[in-house]
Design a protein around this nucleic acid. Structure first.
Lengths: 154, 154
DNA sequence: ATAGGACCTGTAGCGGCTACAGGTTCAAGG
DNA sequence: CCTTGAACCTGTAGCCGCTACAGGTCCTAT
C-alpha cells in the first residue's frame, strides 16, 4: 500500500467490500452517488480506503438493510455528520419509513390471504376447473384488492 | 370505429385502459412484452380492441395486483388458453408466489420491529444521543438482520 | 519475467412501468 | 367543410438500487 492517509493503514476496495459484506461494484456505485466520499488513490490509480470510509459504508449498508431508500440514507448521513443538531429529522425519517413498512406489510397480508384461498381451493384437476385461473379471469372479482390501496400490491 | 373484428364492436386504447383501470402506456407496454396480442388497427393506425383483449388485460391486471411477476403471468396466461391441461403448473406458480409473499412479510416484520425499537428509544434530543443514528452507526449491531436471510430486506 | 488475480472506467440490463417529445388522427361543434 | 383540441401514434429516457459485463491496467507472487 503506497498511499498513507493521515498515518492510518489504507486498504483496497476489495478489502473494504469484504469487511462491509458488500460488493466492489456497489462501493463504486455509492461513490458515484455521493454516499461515500472519493478515497485517495495509489500511484497506479487504485482506491485506497481508511477506517472512516469503512464506518460510513457500514452505516449506509445498515440503513439499507433496514430498507431506507438512498435519499433517506443521504439525509441520515448528513445528520450523523452534525452531532450537535436536533435529531428530530432523523426521527421523522425513521417514523415515515416505519409507516411505509407497516403499509407494505398490510398489503402483503391481504395478498397472502387471497393467494392462500386460491391454492387451497384448487382441486388439482384440469385448467378448466382450476380455481387459480378462475379467480384471475373472474371479472367481478377483479377489484376487491385494488379498491383498498392506491399503489401496487407491495 | 371503422374496423370491425368478427362482428363485435371495437374500442380504442383509451377506452380499454379505462375499462381495465389501467393506463394507456401500460397497455402498449404489455403489447410490446407479448402479454397482450396486437389488435387490429383503424385506417389511421389507431389500435382497435375487442372484448377478448379486455378479458386478457383484466386477467393480467388481476394477476399483477396479486403480485405475480410478469413471467408468472405469461405462464398463467398460457395455461388459461388450454383448459384441457392439468392445472398443476398453475398451482405450483401460485404456491411459489405465496411462499415468496410470506417470506417478504416475515422480513418486513423483522424490519418493523427494529424500526419501532429505534424510534421508540429516540429521546428527541441532539443527534449525538439519537438512538436512530446510533443504531445505524453501531458496528456490533450491523449484522443482526442480515444474518437471517439471503437477499435484501424486502 | 510472467502469470493471473484484483483493480480501473464506462455502459447496459433487471422489473414494471411512467413520462416525456414531437408528430398524426379522430370526433364534435360551428 | 373547417377548425379545434383531445386522443392517439412511435420512440426514447427515466425511476430504484444495484449487478454484470467488456476491454483494459495494475499489483503481487513465483
Amino acid at each position: 500500500m503506497s498511499v498513507d492517509a493521515g498515518g492510518a493503514a489504507a486498504f483496497s476496495i476489495g478489502e473494504l467490500a469484504r469487511r462491509a459484506s458488500t460488493k466492489v461494484e456497489t462501493v463504486r456505485w455509492y461513490e458515484r452517488e455521493g454516499l461515500l466520499p472519493a478515497p485517495a488513490r495509489t500511484a497506479g490509480g487504485h482506491r485506497a480506503y481508511t477506517r472512516a470510509h469503512l464506518d460510513r459504508l457500514a452505516f449506509v449498508r445498515h440503513a439499507r438493510e433496514l430498507g431506507f431508500p438512498l435519499d433517506d440514507v443521504r439525509g441520515l448521513l448528513a445528520l450523523a455528520d452534525h452531532p450537535e443538531r436536533s435529531c428530530a429529522t432523523a426521527d421523522r425519517i425513521a417514523r415515515a419509513h416505519l409507516d411505509a413498512v407497516r403499509g407494505r406489510i398490510a398489503r402483503l397480508r391481504a395478498l397472502e390471504e387471497e393467494l392462500a384461498r386460491m391454492v387451497a381451493d384448487c382441486g388439482q384437476g384440469r385448467v378448466a376447473e382450476c380455481r387459480v385461473i378462475e379467480v384471475l379471469a373472474d371479472h367481478s372479482h377483479a377489484n376487491c384488492l385494488h379498491a383498498g390501496g392506491h399503489g401496487g400490491p407491495e
